[in-house]
Design a binder for these strands. Structure first.
Lengths: 296, 296
DNA sequence: CATGTTCTCTGACTAAAGTCAGAGAACATG
DNA sequence: CATGTTCTCTGACTTTAGTCAGAGAACATG
Protein backbone atom coordinates (compact mmCIF):
# COMPACT_ATOMS: atom_id res chain seq x y z
CA UNK A 1 0.00 0.00 0.00
CA UNK A 2 2.53 2.56 -1.08
CA UNK A 3 -0.51 4.59 -2.05
CA UNK A 4 -2.04 4.85 1.39
CA UNK A 5 1.35 5.61 2.88
CA UNK A 6 1.86 8.42 0.44
CA UNK A 7 -1.50 10.04 1.04
CA UNK A 8 -0.96 9.70 4.77
CA UNK A 9 2.31 11.61 4.49
CA UNK A 10 0.70 14.22 2.30
CA UNK A 11 -2.17 14.73 4.68
CA UNK A 12 0.05 14.81 7.71
CA UNK A 13 2.24 17.36 6.03
CA UNK A 14 -0.78 19.30 4.91
CA UNK A 15 -2.13 19.70 8.41
CA UNK A 16 1.17 20.70 9.93
CA UNK A 17 2.06 23.01 7.13
CA UNK A 18 -1.20 24.89 6.80
CA UNK A 19 -1.34 25.30 10.54
CA UNK A 20 2.17 26.66 10.86
CA UNK A 21 2.51 28.84 7.88
CA UNK A 22 -1.19 29.30 7.55
CA UNK A 23 -0.68 29.30 3.82
CA UNK A 24 -0.27 32.75 2.45
CA UNK A 25 -3.59 33.72 3.90
CA UNK A 26 -2.43 35.13 7.20
CA UNK A 27 0.07 37.38 5.58
CA UNK A 28 -2.75 38.82 3.51
CA UNK A 29 -4.49 40.03 6.62
CA UNK A 30 -3.40 42.95 8.68
CA UNK A 31 -2.75 45.34 5.85
CA UNK A 32 -6.15 46.97 6.28
CA UNK A 33 -7.78 45.13 3.39
CA UNK A 34 -10.19 42.21 3.48
CA UNK A 35 -8.82 38.94 2.21
CA UNK A 36 -10.47 38.97 -1.20
CA UNK A 37 -9.35 42.50 -1.94
CA UNK A 38 -5.81 41.78 -0.73
CA UNK A 39 -5.66 38.71 -2.90
CA UNK A 40 -6.72 40.75 -5.90
CA UNK A 41 -4.17 43.44 -5.11
CA UNK A 42 -1.50 40.78 -4.87
CA UNK A 43 -2.49 39.28 -8.19
CA UNK A 44 -2.54 42.60 -10.01
CA UNK A 45 0.80 43.51 -8.45
CA UNK A 46 2.38 40.29 -9.68
CA UNK A 47 1.35 41.23 -13.19
CA UNK A 48 -1.06 43.90 -14.42
CA UNK A 49 -3.82 42.28 -16.42
CA UNK A 50 -7.27 42.62 -17.90
CA UNK A 51 -10.28 42.22 -15.66
CA UNK A 52 -11.09 39.08 -17.57
CA UNK A 53 -7.72 37.49 -16.90
CA UNK A 54 -8.00 38.30 -13.20
CA UNK A 55 -11.43 36.78 -13.10
CA UNK A 56 -10.26 33.50 -14.51
CA UNK A 57 -7.08 33.46 -12.42
CA UNK A 58 -8.92 34.04 -9.17
CA UNK A 59 -12.15 32.33 -10.13
CA UNK A 60 -14.38 35.29 -9.37
CA UNK A 61 -17.86 36.30 -10.46
CA UNK A 62 -17.77 39.23 -12.85
CA UNK A 63 -20.02 41.40 -10.68
CA UNK A 64 -17.98 40.61 -7.63
CA UNK A 65 -14.72 41.45 -9.36
CA UNK A 66 -16.19 44.67 -10.61
CA UNK A 67 -16.93 45.72 -7.06
CA UNK A 68 -13.54 44.64 -5.75
CA UNK A 69 -11.87 46.69 -8.47
CA UNK A 70 -13.99 49.66 -7.56
CA UNK A 71 -12.86 49.31 -4.00
CA UNK A 72 -9.21 49.25 -4.98
CA UNK A 73 -9.81 52.33 -7.10
CA UNK A 74 -11.59 54.16 -4.31
CA UNK A 75 -8.73 53.42 -1.96
CA UNK A 76 -6.36 54.82 -4.55
CA UNK A 77 -4.54 51.54 -4.98
CA UNK A 78 -5.39 50.70 -8.56
CA UNK A 79 -6.38 52.31 -11.83
CA UNK A 80 -8.79 50.71 -14.23
CA UNK A 81 -8.68 51.87 -17.86
CA UNK A 82 -10.28 50.65 -21.06
CA UNK A 83 -8.06 48.44 -23.19
CA UNK A 84 -7.27 50.49 -26.35
CA UNK A 85 -7.24 47.26 -28.37
CA UNK A 86 -10.74 46.28 -27.31
CA UNK A 87 -12.67 48.89 -25.44
CA UNK A 88 -15.04 46.40 -23.82
CA UNK A 89 -12.08 45.12 -21.86
CA UNK A 90 -10.59 46.89 -18.85
CA UNK A 91 -6.93 47.04 -17.94
CA UNK A 92 -6.01 47.01 -14.30
CA UNK A 93 -2.75 48.32 -12.89
CA UNK A 94 -1.57 49.53 -9.50
CA UNK A 95 -0.93 53.13 -8.52
CA UNK A 96 2.36 53.94 -6.77
CA UNK A 97 0.48 53.69 -3.48
CA UNK A 98 -0.95 50.34 -4.55
CA UNK A 99 2.50 49.15 -5.42
CA UNK A 100 3.67 50.21 -1.98
CA UNK A 101 0.91 48.12 -0.41
CA UNK A 102 1.75 45.23 -2.66
CA UNK A 103 5.34 45.35 -1.50
CA UNK A 104 4.02 45.32 2.03
CA UNK A 105 2.23 42.05 1.30
CA UNK A 106 5.41 40.70 -0.20
CA UNK A 107 7.40 41.69 2.85
CA UNK A 108 4.97 40.08 5.22
CA UNK A 109 5.03 36.90 3.23
CA UNK A 110 8.82 36.97 3.18
CA UNK A 111 8.95 37.68 6.92
CA UNK A 112 6.67 34.76 7.60
CA UNK A 113 8.86 32.40 5.63
CA UNK A 114 11.97 33.76 7.33
CA UNK A 115 10.43 33.35 10.73
CA UNK A 116 9.74 29.72 9.93
CA UNK A 117 13.34 28.90 9.08
CA UNK A 118 14.82 31.09 11.78
CA UNK A 119 15.29 28.28 14.34
CA UNK A 120 17.00 26.08 11.76
CA UNK A 121 20.72 25.86 11.15
CA UNK A 122 22.14 26.61 7.71
CA UNK A 123 22.35 22.92 6.93
CA UNK A 124 18.80 22.30 7.98
CA UNK A 125 17.62 25.22 5.90
CA UNK A 126 19.31 23.67 2.92
CA UNK A 127 17.62 20.38 3.65
CA UNK A 128 14.24 22.08 3.94
CA UNK A 129 14.76 24.00 0.72
CA UNK A 130 15.84 20.86 -1.09
CA UNK A 131 12.89 18.86 0.20
CA UNK A 132 10.39 21.57 -0.73
CA UNK A 133 11.95 22.04 -4.15
CA UNK A 134 11.63 18.32 -4.79
CA UNK A 135 8.04 18.26 -3.59
CA UNK A 136 7.30 21.37 -5.62
CA UNK A 137 8.62 19.80 -8.80
CA UNK A 138 6.62 16.63 -8.32
CA UNK A 139 3.42 18.41 -7.36
CA UNK A 140 3.69 20.74 -10.31
CA UNK A 141 4.53 17.94 -12.70
CA UNK A 142 1.54 16.00 -11.45
CA UNK A 143 -0.90 18.86 -11.79
CA UNK A 144 0.16 20.88 -14.82
CA UNK A 145 -2.36 20.55 -17.62
CA UNK A 146 -1.86 20.24 -21.35
CA UNK A 147 -3.66 22.91 -23.34
CA UNK A 148 -4.43 22.49 -27.00
CA UNK A 149 -3.05 25.47 -28.87
CA UNK A 150 -2.48 26.55 -32.42
CA UNK A 151 1.05 25.43 -33.39
CA UNK A 152 1.51 28.89 -34.85
CA UNK A 153 0.61 30.74 -31.62
CA UNK A 154 3.30 32.57 -29.65
CA UNK A 155 3.27 30.08 -26.77
CA UNK A 156 3.64 27.14 -29.16
CA UNK A 157 6.43 28.88 -31.06
CA UNK A 158 8.17 29.52 -27.75
CA UNK A 159 7.91 25.90 -26.68
CA UNK A 160 8.98 24.48 -30.06
CA UNK A 161 11.79 27.02 -30.15
CA UNK A 162 13.16 25.52 -26.96
CA UNK A 163 12.74 22.07 -28.42
CA UNK A 164 14.66 23.02 -31.57
CA UNK A 165 17.37 24.65 -29.47
CA UNK A 166 17.86 21.46 -27.52
CA UNK A 167 17.85 19.02 -30.43
CA UNK A 168 20.08 21.42 -32.32
CA UNK A 169 22.54 21.27 -29.46
CA UNK A 170 22.32 17.53 -29.04
CA UNK A 171 22.44 16.20 -32.57
CA UNK A 172 22.60 19.18 -34.89
CA UNK A 173 18.98 19.17 -35.94
CA UNK A 174 18.23 21.86 -38.50
CA UNK A 175 14.72 23.33 -38.12
CA UNK A 176 14.67 25.13 -41.50
CA UNK A 177 11.14 25.06 -42.89
CA UNK A 178 9.79 22.92 -40.08
CA UNK A 179 7.65 25.55 -38.30
CA UNK A 180 5.78 26.21 -41.52
CA UNK A 181 5.00 22.52 -42.00
CA UNK A 182 3.97 22.20 -38.35
CA UNK A 183 1.55 25.10 -38.65
CA UNK A 184 -0.46 22.98 -41.07
CA UNK A 185 0.25 19.40 -39.96
CA UNK A 186 -0.22 19.94 -36.23
CA UNK A 187 -3.33 22.08 -36.43
CA UNK A 188 -6.90 20.86 -36.85
CA UNK A 189 -8.24 19.21 -38.82
CA UNK A 190 -5.01 17.35 -39.66
CA UNK A 191 -3.45 17.24 -36.22
CA UNK A 192 -3.22 18.77 -32.80
CA UNK A 193 -0.63 20.46 -30.68
CA UNK A 194 -0.40 20.82 -26.91
CA UNK A 195 1.60 22.92 -24.50
CA UNK A 196 1.91 22.73 -20.73
CA UNK A 197 2.57 26.09 -19.11
CA UNK A 198 3.61 26.71 -15.53
CA UNK A 199 4.14 30.19 -14.16
CA UNK A 200 3.93 31.63 -17.63
CA UNK A 201 6.70 29.46 -19.01
CA UNK A 202 6.24 26.48 -21.36
CA UNK A 203 7.45 23.35 -19.62
CA UNK A 204 6.43 20.68 -22.10
CA UNK A 205 4.92 20.34 -25.56
CA UNK A 206 4.08 17.83 -28.20
CA UNK A 207 1.80 17.21 -31.15
CA UNK A 208 0.20 14.59 -33.32
CA UNK A 209 0.01 14.58 -37.12
CA UNK A 210 -1.64 12.19 -39.52
CA UNK A 211 0.50 9.83 -41.59
CA UNK A 212 -2.51 8.22 -43.26
CA UNK A 213 -3.92 4.69 -43.01
CA UNK A 214 -4.93 5.14 -39.37
CA UNK A 215 -1.41 6.03 -38.31
CA UNK A 216 -0.73 9.12 -36.18
CA UNK A 217 2.76 10.44 -35.61
CA UNK A 218 3.92 11.95 -32.35
CA UNK A 219 6.05 15.03 -33.04
CA UNK A 220 7.97 17.77 -31.21
CA UNK A 221 7.75 16.03 -27.88
CA UNK A 222 9.76 18.02 -25.38
CA UNK A 223 10.01 18.47 -21.60
CA UNK A 224 11.81 21.38 -19.95
CA UNK A 225 15.03 20.03 -18.49
CA UNK A 226 14.28 21.41 -15.03
CA UNK A 227 11.14 19.30 -15.10
CA UNK A 228 12.53 15.93 -16.07
CA UNK A 229 12.28 12.90 -13.87
CA UNK A 230 8.91 13.83 -12.49
CA UNK A 231 6.73 11.84 -14.83
CA UNK A 232 5.75 14.74 -17.04
CA UNK A 233 7.02 12.99 -20.17
CA UNK A 234 4.88 9.91 -19.52
CA UNK A 235 1.85 12.04 -18.89
CA UNK A 236 2.45 13.99 -22.07
CA UNK A 237 2.90 10.86 -24.15
CA UNK A 238 -0.31 9.37 -22.78
CA UNK A 239 -2.10 12.61 -23.54
CA UNK A 240 -0.84 12.58 -27.12
CA UNK A 241 -1.91 8.97 -27.54
CA UNK A 242 -5.39 9.87 -26.33
CA UNK A 243 -5.47 12.73 -28.80
CA UNK A 244 -4.33 10.44 -31.62
CA UNK A 245 -7.02 7.95 -30.70
CA UNK A 246 -9.63 10.71 -30.69
CA UNK A 247 -8.45 11.75 -34.14
CA UNK A 248 -9.24 8.24 -35.32
CA UNK A 249 -5.75 6.75 -35.46
CA UNK A 250 -5.24 3.13 -34.56
CA UNK A 251 -1.45 3.20 -34.38
CA UNK A 252 0.99 5.74 -32.97
CA UNK A 253 4.39 6.08 -34.54
CA UNK A 254 7.38 8.27 -33.82
CA UNK A 255 11.01 8.72 -34.66
CA UNK A 256 13.89 9.95 -32.55
CA UNK A 257 17.63 10.31 -32.47
CA UNK A 258 19.99 7.92 -30.73
CA UNK A 259 21.40 10.70 -28.57
CA UNK A 260 18.05 11.19 -26.85
CA UNK A 261 18.50 8.28 -24.48
CA UNK A 262 15.91 9.46 -21.92
CA UNK A 263 13.28 9.70 -24.64
CA UNK A 264 14.12 6.24 -25.94
CA UNK A 265 13.82 4.82 -22.43
CA UNK A 266 10.47 6.57 -22.08
CA UNK A 267 9.13 5.04 -25.29
CA UNK A 268 10.30 1.59 -24.21
CA UNK A 269 8.57 1.98 -20.84
CA UNK A 270 5.39 3.16 -22.52
CA UNK A 271 5.16 -0.07 -24.55
CA UNK A 272 6.49 1.14 -27.91
CA UNK A 273 8.13 -1.40 -30.22
CA UNK A 274 11.07 -0.73 -32.55
CA UNK A 275 9.93 -0.52 -36.13
CA UNK A 276 11.74 -0.06 -39.48
CA UNK A 277 12.49 3.39 -40.80
CA UNK A 278 9.56 5.32 -42.16
CA UNK A 279 9.50 8.78 -43.70
CA UNK A 280 12.55 10.76 -44.71
CA UNK A 281 13.69 12.54 -41.58
CA UNK A 282 17.48 12.60 -42.01
CA UNK A 283 18.03 13.17 -38.26
CA UNK A 284 16.03 10.17 -37.10
CA UNK A 285 17.93 7.03 -36.17
CA UNK A 286 15.32 5.11 -34.14
CA UNK A 287 11.70 4.39 -35.02
CA UNK A 288 8.90 3.24 -32.73
CA UNK A 289 5.28 2.28 -32.92
CA UNK A 290 2.49 1.21 -30.64
CA UNK A 291 -1.06 0.03 -31.11
CA UNK A 292 -3.69 2.42 -29.79
CA UNK A 293 -6.31 -0.30 -29.63
CA UNK A 294 -6.64 -0.70 -25.87
CA UNK A 295 -7.07 2.65 -24.17
CA UNK A 296 -4.31 3.24 -21.57
CA UNK B 1 22.29 34.51 0.78
CA UNK B 2 21.24 30.97 1.67
CA UNK B 3 18.49 32.69 3.59
CA UNK B 4 16.85 34.46 0.68
CA UNK B 5 17.17 31.33 -1.42
CA UNK B 6 15.40 29.31 1.23
CA UNK B 7 12.52 31.72 1.68
CA UNK B 8 12.17 31.93 -2.09
CA UNK B 9 11.80 28.16 -2.29
CA UNK B 10 9.34 28.15 0.57
CA UNK B 11 7.24 30.84 -1.00
CA UNK B 12 7.32 29.27 -4.42
CA UNK B 13 6.28 25.98 -2.90
CA UNK B 14 3.64 27.70 -0.84
CA UNK B 15 1.99 29.25 -3.86
CA UNK B 16 1.99 26.09 -5.92
CA UNK B 17 0.91 23.92 -3.07
CA UNK B 18 -1.94 26.00 -1.74
CA UNK B 19 -3.22 26.49 -5.25
CA UNK B 20 -3.18 22.82 -6.13
CA UNK B 21 -4.29 21.13 -3.02
CA UNK B 22 -6.09 24.21 -1.84
CA UNK B 23 -5.10 23.20 1.66
CA UNK B 24 -7.75 21.08 3.22
CA UNK B 25 -10.24 23.82 2.59
CA UNK B 26 -11.74 22.59 -0.62
CA UNK B 27 -12.41 19.16 0.75
CA UNK B 28 -14.37 20.81 3.53
CA UNK B 29 -16.83 22.19 1.05
CA UNK B 30 -19.47 20.19 -0.68
CA UNK B 31 -20.72 18.23 2.32
CA UNK B 32 -23.60 20.61 2.85
CA UNK B 33 -21.97 22.54 5.65
CA UNK B 34 -20.40 25.98 5.60
CA UNK B 35 -16.64 26.02 5.99
CA UNK B 36 -16.52 27.10 9.63
CA UNK B 37 -19.02 24.47 10.69
CA UNK B 38 -17.26 21.77 8.70
CA UNK B 39 -13.93 22.71 10.25
CA UNK B 40 -15.48 22.45 13.69
CA UNK B 41 -17.01 19.09 12.87
CA UNK B 42 -13.64 17.88 11.66
CA UNK B 43 -11.91 19.05 14.81
CA UNK B 44 -14.45 17.44 17.13
CA UNK B 45 -14.27 14.25 15.12
CA UNK B 46 -10.51 14.11 15.46
CA UNK B 47 -10.92 14.22 19.21
CA UNK B 48 -13.96 15.08 21.30
CA UNK B 49 -13.16 18.04 23.51
CA UNK B 50 -14.52 20.82 25.68
CA UNK B 51 -15.91 23.92 24.06
CA UNK B 52 -13.01 25.81 25.54
CA UNK B 53 -10.40 23.56 23.96
CA UNK B 54 -12.10 23.86 20.59
CA UNK B 55 -12.14 27.59 20.93
CA UNK B 56 -8.44 27.81 21.52
CA UNK B 57 -7.62 25.23 18.83
CA UNK B 58 -9.63 26.99 16.18
CA UNK B 59 -9.20 30.51 17.48
CA UNK B 60 -12.89 31.30 17.65
CA UNK B 61 -14.93 33.87 19.55
CA UNK B 62 -16.94 32.23 22.31
CA UNK B 63 -20.25 33.58 21.04
CA UNK B 64 -19.46 32.40 17.56
CA UNK B 65 -18.49 28.94 18.71
CA UNK B 66 -21.65 28.70 20.76
CA UNK B 67 -23.71 29.29 17.66
CA UNK B 68 -21.69 26.88 15.55
CA UNK B 69 -22.21 24.19 18.17
CA UNK B 70 -25.89 24.88 18.23
CA UNK B 71 -25.96 24.43 14.51
CA UNK B 72 -24.21 21.07 14.71
CA UNK B 73 -26.67 20.04 17.40
CA UNK B 74 -29.67 21.13 15.37
CA UNK B 75 -28.43 19.15 12.41
CA UNK B 76 -28.10 16.13 14.66
CA UNK B 77 -24.36 15.88 14.16
CA UNK B 78 -23.10 16.63 17.65
CA UNK B 79 -24.17 16.45 21.27
CA UNK B 80 -23.14 19.06 23.79
CA UNK B 81 -23.30 18.05 27.45
CA UNK B 82 -22.11 19.68 30.66
CA UNK B 83 -18.77 18.40 31.92
CA UNK B 84 -19.52 16.46 35.13
CA UNK B 85 -16.19 17.58 36.56
CA UNK B 86 -16.99 21.27 36.07
CA UNK B 87 -20.49 22.07 35.05
CA UNK B 88 -19.60 25.43 33.57
CA UNK B 89 -17.76 23.57 30.88
CA UNK B 90 -19.40 21.81 27.95
CA UNK B 91 -18.28 18.56 26.39
CA UNK B 92 -18.72 18.15 22.67
CA UNK B 93 -18.91 14.84 20.88
CA UNK B 94 -20.29 13.61 17.60
CA UNK B 95 -23.44 11.59 17.12
CA UNK B 96 -23.26 8.48 14.91
CA UNK B 97 -24.58 10.63 12.08
CA UNK B 98 -21.93 13.25 12.85
CA UNK B 99 -19.26 10.59 12.78
CA UNK B 100 -20.55 9.48 9.42
CA UNK B 101 -20.21 13.01 8.11
CA UNK B 102 -16.77 13.28 9.63
CA UNK B 103 -15.70 10.16 7.81
CA UNK B 104 -17.03 11.75 4.66
CA UNK B 105 -14.70 14.70 5.21
CA UNK B 106 -11.86 12.28 5.80
CA UNK B 107 -12.66 10.43 2.60
CA UNK B 108 -12.74 13.59 0.56
CA UNK B 109 -9.45 14.67 1.98
CA UNK B 110 -8.00 11.25 1.21
CA UNK B 111 -9.42 11.31 -2.29
CA UNK B 112 -7.91 14.70 -2.91
CA UNK B 113 -4.49 13.52 -1.84
CA UNK B 114 -4.84 10.41 -3.97
CA UNK B 115 -5.88 12.44 -6.96
CA UNK B 116 -2.77 14.53 -6.58
CA UNK B 117 -0.40 11.56 -6.73
CA UNK B 118 -2.41 9.69 -9.32
CA UNK B 119 -0.34 10.86 -12.31
CA UNK B 120 2.90 9.91 -10.55
CA UNK B 121 4.69 6.61 -10.86
CA UNK B 122 5.38 4.50 -7.76
CA UNK B 123 8.93 5.78 -7.61
CA UNK B 124 7.85 9.38 -7.90
CA UNK B 125 5.27 8.87 -5.19
CA UNK B 126 8.00 7.58 -2.95
CA UNK B 127 10.09 10.61 -3.75
CA UNK B 128 7.20 12.92 -2.99
CA UNK B 129 6.45 11.17 0.27
CA UNK B 130 10.10 11.28 1.29
CA UNK B 131 10.42 14.96 0.44
CA UNK B 132 7.27 15.88 2.32
CA UNK B 133 8.24 13.78 5.32
CA UNK B 134 11.58 15.56 5.44
CA UNK B 135 9.95 18.96 5.12
CA UNK B 136 7.37 17.98 7.71
CA UNK B 137 10.04 16.99 10.21
CA UNK B 138 11.96 20.21 9.75
CA UNK B 139 8.91 22.43 9.85
CA UNK B 140 7.63 20.74 12.97
CA UNK B 141 11.01 20.83 14.66
CA UNK B 142 11.28 24.52 13.85
CA UNK B 143 7.87 25.41 15.21
CA UNK B 144 7.20 23.13 18.15
CA UNK B 145 7.18 25.09 21.40
CA UNK B 146 8.53 24.21 24.81
CA UNK B 147 5.93 24.36 27.55
CA UNK B 148 6.88 24.66 31.17
CA UNK B 149 5.18 21.86 33.10
CA UNK B 150 5.29 20.34 36.54
CA UNK B 151 7.90 17.51 36.46
CA UNK B 152 5.35 15.40 38.27
CA UNK B 153 2.60 15.91 35.67
CA UNK B 154 1.56 13.04 33.39
CA UNK B 155 3.10 14.57 30.28
CA UNK B 156 6.41 15.15 32.07
CA UNK B 157 6.39 11.61 33.47
CA UNK B 158 5.71 10.32 29.98
CA UNK B 159 8.60 12.26 28.48
CA UNK B 160 11.07 11.42 31.25
CA UNK B 161 9.95 7.81 31.08
CA UNK B 162 11.03 7.72 27.46
CA UNK B 163 14.30 9.36 28.41
CA UNK B 164 14.93 6.76 31.12
CA UNK B 165 14.08 3.97 28.73
CA UNK B 166 16.62 5.22 26.26
CA UNK B 167 19.49 5.81 28.68
CA UNK B 168 18.68 2.51 30.36
CA UNK B 169 19.07 0.84 27.00
CA UNK B 170 22.22 2.71 26.06
CA UNK B 171 24.28 2.60 29.23
CA UNK B 172 22.25 0.85 31.87
CA UNK B 173 21.08 3.91 33.72
CA UNK B 174 19.00 3.03 36.79
CA UNK B 175 16.23 5.57 37.46
CA UNK B 176 15.42 4.35 40.98
CA UNK B 177 14.42 7.29 43.15
CA UNK B 178 15.13 9.84 40.43
CA UNK B 179 11.53 10.87 39.62
CA UNK B 180 10.96 11.76 43.26
CA UNK B 181 14.05 13.98 43.35
CA UNK B 182 13.06 15.57 40.01
CA UNK B 183 9.62 16.42 41.34
CA UNK B 184 11.29 18.77 43.82
CA UNK B 185 14.48 19.86 42.03
CA UNK B 186 12.95 20.60 38.64
CA UNK B 187 9.87 22.42 39.91
CA UNK B 188 9.64 26.04 40.99
CA UNK B 189 11.06 27.65 42.96
CA UNK B 190 14.17 25.46 42.70
CA UNK B 191 14.09 24.64 39.02
CA UNK B 192 12.01 24.30 35.91
CA UNK B 193 11.03 21.59 33.51
CA UNK B 194 9.92 21.80 29.89
CA UNK B 195 8.26 19.49 27.43
CA UNK B 196 7.65 19.87 23.70
CA UNK B 197 4.54 18.10 22.51
CA UNK B 198 3.54 17.44 18.92
CA UNK B 199 0.31 15.70 17.99
CA UNK B 200 -0.22 14.73 21.61
CA UNK B 201 3.12 12.97 21.94
CA UNK B 202 6.14 14.31 23.83
CA UNK B 203 9.01 14.85 21.42
CA UNK B 204 11.56 16.54 23.65
CA UNK B 205 12.09 17.48 27.27
CA UNK B 206 14.63 18.93 29.64
CA UNK B 207 14.99 20.76 32.93
CA UNK B 208 17.20 22.99 34.98
CA UNK B 209 17.99 22.58 38.67
CA UNK B 210 20.05 24.72 41.06
CA UNK B 211 23.47 23.51 42.14
CA UNK B 212 24.10 26.64 44.24
CA UNK B 213 26.63 29.47 43.78
CA UNK B 214 24.97 30.71 40.61
CA UNK B 215 25.31 27.35 38.87
CA UNK B 216 22.36 25.74 37.13
CA UNK B 217 22.42 22.15 35.96
CA UNK B 218 20.77 20.97 32.77
CA UNK B 219 18.99 17.63 33.39
CA UNK B 220 16.89 15.03 31.56
CA UNK B 221 17.59 16.47 28.16
CA UNK B 222 16.02 14.23 25.59
CA UNK B 223 14.81 14.38 21.98
CA UNK B 224 12.54 11.77 20.40
CA UNK B 225 14.66 9.72 18.04
CA UNK B 226 12.31 10.31 15.13
CA UNK B 227 12.97 14.00 15.61
CA UNK B 228 16.74 14.07 15.68
CA UNK B 229 18.81 15.94 13.18
CA UNK B 230 16.34 18.75 12.79
CA UNK B 231 17.81 21.19 15.27
CA UNK B 232 15.38 20.46 18.05
CA UNK B 233 18.18 19.63 20.51
CA UNK B 234 19.93 22.96 19.93
CA UNK B 235 16.69 24.82 20.35
CA UNK B 236 15.95 22.96 23.55
CA UNK B 237 19.41 23.61 24.97
CA UNK B 238 19.15 27.31 24.20
CA UNK B 239 15.75 27.36 25.82
CA UNK B 240 17.11 25.71 28.96
CA UNK B 241 20.00 28.17 29.09
CA UNK B 242 17.55 31.05 28.88
CA UNK B 243 15.54 29.51 31.69
CA UNK B 244 18.69 29.06 33.82
CA UNK B 245 19.64 32.66 33.20
CA UNK B 246 16.16 33.79 34.19
CA UNK B 247 16.49 31.77 37.40
CA UNK B 248 19.59 33.81 38.22
CA UNK B 249 22.30 31.34 37.28
CA UNK B 250 25.53 32.57 35.76
CA UNK B 251 26.90 29.20 34.71
CA UNK B 252 25.27 26.15 33.13
CA UNK B 253 26.68 22.73 33.91
CA UNK B 254 25.73 19.24 32.82
CA UNK B 255 26.96 15.70 32.83
CA UNK B 256 26.49 12.94 30.33
CA UNK B 257 27.62 9.47 29.41
CA UNK B 258 30.27 8.70 26.81
CA UNK B 259 27.84 6.54 24.83
CA UNK B 260 25.68 9.58 24.04
CA UNK B 261 27.87 10.80 21.23
CA UNK B 262 25.22 12.96 19.56
CA UNK B 263 24.62 14.80 22.82
CA UNK B 264 28.33 15.36 23.35
CA UNK B 265 28.64 16.76 19.83
CA UNK B 266 25.71 19.04 20.55
CA UNK B 267 27.30 20.41 23.71
CA UNK B 268 30.54 21.02 21.89
CA UNK B 269 28.75 22.88 19.12
CA UNK B 270 26.86 24.96 21.66
CA UNK B 271 30.09 26.23 23.21
CA UNK B 272 30.34 24.03 26.28
CA UNK B 273 33.78 23.30 27.75
CA UNK B 274 34.88 20.05 29.37
CA UNK B 275 35.11 20.42 33.11
CA UNK B 276 36.17 18.09 35.96
CA UNK B 277 33.72 15.74 37.57
CA UNK B 278 31.16 17.32 39.91
CA UNK B 279 28.41 15.62 41.91
CA UNK B 280 28.10 11.89 42.43
CA UNK B 281 26.22 10.62 39.40
CA UNK B 282 27.75 7.15 38.92
CA UNK B 283 26.60 6.97 35.31
CA UNK B 284 28.21 10.22 34.22
CA UNK B 285 31.53 10.06 32.40
CA UNK B 286 31.72 13.50 30.78
CA UNK B 287 31.17 16.90 32.37
CA UNK B 288 30.56 20.22 30.66
CA UNK B 289 30.03 23.83 31.57
CA UNK B 290 29.34 27.12 29.88
CA UNK B 291 29.10 30.73 31.02
CA UNK B 292 25.64 32.23 30.70
CA UNK B 293 27.03 35.78 30.77
CA UNK B 294 26.33 36.83 27.21
CA UNK B 295 22.77 35.97 26.14
CA UNK B 296 22.74 33.74 23.09
C1' DC C 1 -25.84 47.50 -41.00
C1' DA C 2 -28.63 43.96 -38.58
C1' DT C 3 -27.52 40.27 -35.45
C1' DG C 4 -25.30 37.75 -32.23
C1' DT C 5 -21.48 37.66 -28.93
C1' DT C 6 -18.31 39.34 -25.49
C1' DC C 7 -17.23 42.04 -21.65
C1' DT C 8 -18.17 44.87 -17.77
C1' DC C 9 -21.24 47.06 -14.71
C1' DT C 10 -25.48 47.73 -11.52
C1' DG C 11 -29.08 46.46 -8.44
C1' DA C 12 -30.97 43.35 -5.35
C1' DC C 13 -30.13 39.70 -2.89
C1' DT C 14 -28.47 35.79 0.70
C1' DA C 15 -25.49 33.42 3.67
C1' DA C 16 -21.42 33.22 6.22
C1' DA C 17 -18.10 35.05 9.30
C1' DG C 18 -16.95 37.49 12.93
C1' DT C 19 -17.31 41.15 16.93
C1' DC C 20 -18.84 43.10 21.28
C1' DA C 21 -21.20 43.81 25.47
C1' DG C 22 -23.38 41.92 28.87
C1' DA C 23 -26.11 38.08 31.65
C1' DG C 24 -26.17 34.16 34.37
C1' DA C 25 -24.64 29.81 36.21
C1' DA C 26 -20.82 27.28 38.36
C1' DC C 27 -16.67 27.17 40.60
C1' DA C 28 -12.56 28.78 43.81
C1' DT C 29 -10.93 31.19 47.76
C1' DG C 30 -10.35 33.47 51.91
C1' DC D 1 -20.89 32.56 52.59
C1' DA D 2 -19.44 36.86 50.22
C1' DT D 3 -16.50 37.89 46.34
C1' DG D 4 -14.08 37.41 42.36
C1' DT D 5 -13.25 34.43 38.36
C1' DT D 6 -14.28 31.24 34.70
C1' DC D 7 -17.12 29.54 31.18
C1' DT D 8 -20.91 29.59 28.10
C1' DC D 9 -24.80 31.74 26.13
C1' DT D 10 -27.81 35.60 23.92
C1' DG D 11 -28.86 39.68 21.44
C1' DA D 12 -27.59 43.09 18.35
C1' DC D 13 -24.55 44.23 15.24
C1' DT D 14 -21.11 44.83 10.90
C1' DT D 15 -18.45 43.28 7.22
C1' DT D 16 -17.23 39.78 3.72
C1' DA D 17 -18.16 36.83 0.27
C1' DG D 18 -20.64 35.41 -3.19
C1' DT D 19 -24.84 34.82 -6.57
C1' DC D 20 -28.08 36.06 -10.19
C1' DA D 21 -30.51 38.56 -13.60
C1' DG D 22 -30.37 41.88 -16.57
C1' DA D 23 -28.56 46.43 -19.04
C1' DG D 24 -25.60 48.60 -22.09
C1' DA D 25 -21.44 49.41 -24.70
C1' DA D 26 -18.11 47.47 -27.94
C1' DC D 27 -16.82 44.18 -31.10
C1' DA D 28 -17.29 40.37 -35.00
C1' DT D 29 -19.61 38.57 -38.96
C1' DG D 30 -22.28 37.68 -42.83
Amino acid sequence: MADAATTAVIRRFNRAYTQRIGALEDSFLGVGLPLGTARLLFEVGAEPATAQALRSRLGLDSGYLSRLLRRLEEEGLAVVTPDPADRRRRLVDLTPEGRRRWRQLEDRSEARARQLVEPLSARQRERLAAALAEADLLVRAATVTFERVDPDSPVARDAVGRYFAEVGRRFGFDPAGEPEKDAVDLAPPRGEFFVAVSDGEPVACGGVRALGDGVGEVKRMWVHDGWRGAGLGSRLLRHLEDAARALGHRVARLDTNETLVEAIALYDRAGYQRTPRYGDNPFATHFFQKSLAAPG
